[in-house]
Write a protein that binds this DNA or RNA. Structure first.
Lengths: 244, 244
DNA sequence: GCCTAGGTCCCGTGC
DNA sequence: GCACGGGGCCTAGGC
């Protein structure tokens, strides 16, 4: 059930929030001071902000800019509502790590409770989609390439694709869905070094991505690693095929 | 000026949104379908969601769970409002990279426009704060340690602190504000290898953080790198000093 | 604009 | 619960 309070008293507001926080998304516009303390520390000067509280415990304080909240607590946090002398205090507590957001609301302008869907979103075109496609089309990597393992676990992390080339040499493949930077090359190098040390023979290392920064490419080349550019449209081409 | 529309007609809603999107944060609750296409692709089944649109172009569609919007466009996106036969279409366009979010609103429950602060938040306790502190207290790293450069730029990335130990040996210091994982060790190793190759002499490499995962520690040790644990409260201790 | 790296990252997955 | 790595990452800072 939708419901709205315009310029409610603190008492009304407290009742409303307590009654609805467990089931609805709450939106609160008020003049407030907000403080956060936990892994870091932050605070907002007194002013008008918008609070969004979700039934899963998510607590967010939004300003007029940016996608990220100015201050927040993630899902799983617990909400406490407390009437103070001249204000309404909202306390959000996260237990691990211990973090606390306190909003002291002074002039309540608006509170709304909204019932929205509990969906989990599904995104297409992720790295995992690209790895799927490469596993199904190993010839794309090169003629005669065969997949040995996907998400191969090592002591230094998971290798996207471990395979073998037509000459029988082990190949480590690292996949990125967007432009690869130095970190991606580093990751590949780490896996290659690890396998080399483990097997006593150096495997080939191939980075697959739609693009690579020039310094990352240089770093890759100076380490004897290889690069394969994948069409930026590959995933969407595949998607179209899937939906046909 | 605050303003709210409850169950408005599409025409009313379109006027309201056009008039206020440039200056206020808009909140829209409606039954809608939403589609995203750009770097990836996603869509929401018809249902009730909450849209937040900020004056800077941020466009977010929220469900009842999680901190992140189900679908969004970041700041800088442009908003188009279009009346359709039986619906109100909101189109958010980001130019680079080209991305598009389309929300087709069917049953408008609520629209509110809210004037909130334009603040940029200030957080204390970041990695940069920790680096600051170490630069001011080089003895913490070790007796006789001196700082040569901060944010020292190399071909393979920026070194947090480049210094020299009491025996005159070059030291690469990588700092993490929270638990360090394999990636942090990798980063340090990359810088150390680079300096080694550049100078013909291997520098020491020290990772400074409040904690390190056991596999990362193993990886660090097997590469001849060093670890210094920093008190998790160090930053807040420093902060207290600052505010005294 | 590109590139680099941090983030109170969040988030899912696997142990 | 911890740990690891992806993300439509977002965001800030340099060049």
């Amino acid at each position: 059930m939708e419901n709205y309070l315009i310029k409610p008293s603190n008492e009304e507001a407290a009742r409303f929030i307590k009654a609805r926080a467990a089931s609805s998304v709450l939106l609160i516009k008020a003049v407030m001071r907000v403080d956060y303390e936990g892994r870091a520390k932050a605070g907002l000067e007194a002013g008008s902000y918008l609070i969004m509280i979700k039934p899963d415990g998510t607590f967010m304080v939004h300003g007029s800019k940016k996608e990220k909240p100015l201050i927040w607590n993630p899902p799983g946090s617990r909400l406490y509502v407390e009437l103070q002398d001249n204000a309404l205090a909202l306390l959000s507590i996260r237990s691990s790590p211990r973090e606390r957001v306190i909003a002291i609301l002074h002039e309540l302008e608006f509170i709304g409770s909204f019932d929205v869907e509990h969906v989990d979103n599904k995104v297409v075109g992720t790295e995992s989609d690209l790895v799927d496609w490469l596993v199904s089309n190993p010839g794309f990597i090169e003629q005669g390439f065969t997949v040995l393992e996907r998400e191969f676990e090592t002591a230094v992390g998971k290798i996207d694709i471990l395979g073998r080339d037509s000459r029988g040499r082990i190949v480590v493949v690292e996949v990125k869905r967007s432009q690869a930077g130095p970190d991606a090359v580093n990751q590949l190098k780490r896996y290659v070094d690890h396998i080399a040390q483990k097997r006593g023979e150096r495997p080939r290392g191939i980075l697959v991505s739609p693009d690579i920064s020039s310094s990352a490419y240089f770093y890759l080349k100076t380490n004897g690693l290889e690069y394969i550019k994948v069409n930026r449209n590959l995933t969407s081409l595949r998607k179209i095929t899937d939906y046909s």
